[in-house]
Amino acid sequence: MTKILIVAEHDGQTLNPSTAKVVACAAEIDGAELDVVVFSDSASDVVVQAAKLDAISRVLTVDSVSSKNALAAMIAPQMVAIADGYSHLFGPSTTFGKDLMPRVAALLGVNQISDIMSVEGSHTFKRPIYAGNVVLTVKAPADRPVVATVRTASYQAVGSDNSAVVENIECTVELPTHTRFVELKSASSDRPDLQTAARVVSGGRALGSSENFDIIFALADKLGAGVGASRAAVDAGYVPNEMQVGQTGKIIAPALYVAIGISGAIQHLTGIKDAGTIVAINKDGEAPIFEVADIGLVGDLFKLVPEFTAALK
């Protein structure tokens, strides 16, 4: 019997959209029964949102002050404590899931399948390796729990017309005190979230400065787009790390991706290969970004981008 436990990612108020994408992946396994678990000290809104996710049977809630701020060292032992009877344990391959799920896998004595991009069977999956240059089909042992992270850019979120049963679970496992959350530094933005935005505009090193990134923001605002950046632009300090798109940043799949002044290193292309339409604006017509761009425009971005922005109604 295939029973899958999915860990909800949330900030205490809002369910992260990654959760609905992990559910979509898990729902592709034939005959699977899906439960979502919410670890929190006060997550009533999150529980309500989780219970609406299509395809799930139950939402389990584990109330624990220690789960605040989602430290892997706190959540992993609680997840393992309730894992009995589940054939699969899934999380998102966001920084939250990447931190947590290997700790869960190790406590269960199994390897993890990282970044599931397609379901081939109850224990067989495809995943990218070598920065997406190779797709590997893997098969997990049938007699052990399958612990995995799901590459969220490969899945569309399930709908939210469900009203799943909510059950509170007592979990009395002893938790460590050796890891303590201090603070989260986050640049607040009114722009669409990079990971879920339908449109994304990204800037690269060619922008040359933090101030020059304003032309990227101006275009993004006209398009109603989220804003991203290449690793080079983040390394140069033009924009903060949470804007990085690529293998070591965010893997995204917007309907429209506009790459400006980005040459297109393979690690960056890995982060955008599932985008619907890729537009590239770059002064170097030989740049690798044009090998994958659906629409390319060669020229000076400082002239072309303001012109593009002005031409949009």
């Binding site: 004595g109 199994v110 390897n111 399948i113 067989t124 990218p128 997406g132 240059n133 190779v134 797709v135 590997l136 089909t137 893997v138 098969k139 997990a140 042992p141 007699d143 052990r144 290969k273 890729i278 537009v279 017509g285 044009f290 090998e291 994958v292 761009a293 659906d294 629409i295 390319g296 425009l297 060669v298 072309l304 012109e307 593009f308 031409a311 949009l312």
Partner: peptide, 29 residues
């Protein structure tokens, strides 16, 4: 030793097709 995750098949990824180059912003729009 743990039961390993079997590596069944290595494949190249699907490639995106190269698109069009437009001449100017009007062409892009």
């Amino acid at each position: 030793a743990s039961p390993v995750i079997e590596e069944i098949l290595f494949e190249p990824p699907e490639q995106r097709q190269k698109g069009v180059i437009v001449d100017n912003v009007a062409g892009l729009i």
